[in-house]
Design a protein around this nucleic acid. Structure first.
Lengths: 158, 158
DNA sequence: GACGGTTAGTTGAATCGTCAAGGAACCTGG
DNA sequence: CCAGGTTCCTTGACGATTCAACTAACCGTC
């Protein structure tokens, strides 16, 4: 209990908590309604659509999308059922698989992107000044570097 | 596709996405490890511990914790099993229930708070300057007001 | 005082994510 | 060439969340 939060910090913390609970939920429900996908699912498809050959190594894709390998594996199984993604063996490494976006998957991303971007803009960027956008970027970068640190330390051998 | 995101916005959006995915996950795993509760579970208990009489109407508590009634109902059932919370009929409204924090629940919050606060401080506030903390508060407030707007509009009768 | 509409809260099925375990391919040293 | 360790990915079981009914109590009106 050595270092409690200051009043400013308390307030910021509650609000950040609310945003991290409600913003993903709001985007989730928009995507679910308009496209029948999860936020994570859409994010993965969008990443693939911007990747060279619309294709990525599974592990690479998991890292890009900030998810675990297991989560991605389950997700890709569903996306494959729906015909948006296909798995392909990687040539030079017998263990490796790539997720490849199908044409149907690409069409789906193209069809879904506008309304999703509009929602993001409406909920986030329309509410912020350009300075705030830059400040937000810097703040998130600072937090991410802390999160990355902690990953490293848990990966260290004792 | 009328209004795509600017370069600054793209960057900020990716980072915000990463933070909203990874920060809750990190806190989740700390709380799971050290106290065997969900982030949402802890948040609810913490709210109760600060409430008058360590007690809140279910619907009030759900709103405070930014969760649905159903989510809270399921959660309180679990917390009750563990003896941290108890349900009580509200006097003046036969439908209403209050969630009341038990002594064991209070002890649990007191025991868990320090390490959780330390983690929040380590991951968030130690990385930010006081100006950034205020900026973060303002940014989250702006986003929340957009989210609140959208709640209202969905509540309107057609 | 009973009828329709609304609000509080619960419940169960289905979905999503995590965790721990495991299979298969790779790599290194002898 | 093979034993031990590591990496890549999958799998299955379990817990958490959501969604869509559902019950029960309230409220206004006639």
């Amino acid at each position: 209990m050595a270092t409690w939060l200051s009043e400013d910090e308390q307030r910021a913390w509650r609000r950040l908590g609310a945003v991290t609970m409600l913003l993903p939920a709001a985007l989730e429900s928009q995507l679910q309604r308009d496209a029948g996908v999860t936020h994570f699912g859409y994010w993965v498809l969008a990443m693939l659509s911007e990747s060279p050959g619309r294709s990525r190594r599974m592990s690479e894709l998991a890292a890009l999308a900030n998810g675990s390998q297991s989560r991605l594996s389950h997700l890709v199984a569903k996306l494959e059922e729906r015909g948006w993604v296909r798995r392909e063996k990687v040539g030079d490494d017998g263990r490796g698989f790539s997720a490849v976006l199908t044409d149907a998957g690409y069409d789906m991303v193209v069809a879904t992107a506008p309304s999703h971007v509009a929602e993001v803009r409406r909920l986030v960027f329309d509410a912020l000044s350009p300075e705030q956008v830059r400040a937000l970027d810097a703040i998130c970068a600072a937090i991410m570097s802390r999160l990355a640190e902690c990953d490293e330390s848990t990966e260290l051998p004792g």
